[in-house]
Every structure is written in structure tokens, then in C-alpha cells.
Amino acid sequence: MAKWGMVIDLEKCTGCQACSTACQMENNRLPGENYQDVLYYTDGRQPTPQLKWFPRPCMHCEEPSCMHVCPTKATYKTEDGVVLIDWDKCIGCKYCMIACPYGVRFYTDEKPLIEPNIKQVFKGDGDLSWNPPYKGPQQDPKHGVGIQPNGVVSKCNFCYHKISKAPKGTADLDESNPELVEYVPACVRTCAPKARYFGDLDNPNSQVSRLISDKQGTRLLDHTGNKPQVYYVSGGGAASGAVPGTRSNKKA
């Protein structure tokens, strides 16, 4: 069984937020409710300020603290290493949001992010939070995929409706491979500078595994013991590595 993971090359990322928009469209979310975002910060002071950014999807940790605190066991880890929410079990207590050190879980029911409340304009059927005019065909509450019901926490699912259909034994879900492109997560597929790689971390020959070893892939907040399955790399290895690498090198 594969252990899906992601590698994000911070040197390539341009901060364009195309991934956030793709995520929002793929998962029937409203603007601003996307499951992943790109953090950006200004670093340094005049006259040499720098704009820095990095994308923040769910880290799909090996030891997810969100899963351990869930009182209903609605959050679970699949055999292929993805952390998912069973919306049929979630009671929306939000303890997982407090426990997650990366802040990648969302509860959007309390107040609308934009006025007028678009969810009221496109009212959902039954328990669903809304009925978007554009929407994907997939609806799988057991895996936290599709339109979100009311009163539950939601999160990035690595586009589980796509990756779970990939042929068994696939090492890398590469968007440039026409046979695999339909199984690639939306953010990876849409990334214009190709800063994201998605593949099997357990396969030593996969591109993600090679990138992690060649470029010293790093996990964020490793001291929490969560062991994320999303790795960040920057530059060509030990010689470079600042964010964004090239510009930083030139300055030095």
C-alpha cells in the first residue's frame, strides 16, 4: 500500500495562489474556505524587504494529533496514509482544530466570510451546507469528500476522490503523465511553476522520495512529533536553501 505524500519546492513556488483556487473549486468551497492556502510574509526592513511565502496544505501527519483527540473517532488515517474526516461521525466539537499545530482544519458554519451569505442564496439539500452552482460529481461523506454538511469540521483530503482511483503500485502521480493526470490532486495538477510533487513516500524510487533525500526535505514543526507527510525543499541542496533560494543567494 502506498503512503501518499507531497513535496513542495519553495524555490519554485511563486505564491500565485492558483493551488488555493483549484482546491476551492475542486472541493466545492467558497472563496476563502479553501482547504489549503499560501502564507506570505514580509521579511527584513527597508531598503531590502523581502516577500516570502509558503503553501500550507494539510500535512497528513503520520501521528496526527487531530485524530488522537477526536471524541467520536471521526478523524482517521487510511491505509494509504491520508488523514480524513468521516462527516457522518463528526459532531463539530472543534477539538481537532485546537490540537492541529498547523492550523489546517476549518469550521465555516458560524459566520459567512463574505456578505451576502452565498450559502443562503444557494441553499443545500437536506443536511448539506449549500448547493454550489458549480460542483464536482463526487459526494462521499465517509471520506470527507464533496459538499460539506452543516456542523462538521472539514479539511484537505489530498483529493481522495482522485488519488484513491490511481492504479495500484503507482510511484508518482505526475500531472505531466497523461495516463495519471486525472488522479493528481487539484493543487498539484494546477501548480504552474511545478513546485509540487505528489507520490508514494514508501517507494524509494519515487520522485518524492528522491527529492526528499537529494534536497534534504524538511518537515515543519517536527518537534511536535506529528511527522508530516508533506515535505518542504528549497534550492539544490545543502549549498542553497533559503526562501526563496535564488534571490537570497544573489543577495549574499
Partner: peptide, 19 residues
């Protein structure tokens, strides 16, 4: 949390570069 994460992330990559 967001700010701490950003700080941790940038610190990690900057330190590696000796900054």
C-alpha cells in the same frame, strides 16, 4: 498558529543557509 508556523518554516530554511 499561522504566524508560528510561518516563523518556524522560515527559520528552518534560513538557518540552513547560515543566516
Amino acid at each position: 498558529k499561522t504566524e508560528n508556523l510561518a516563523r518556524a518554516g522560515f527559520a528552518l530554511f534560513s538557518r540552513r543557509h547560515g543566516e
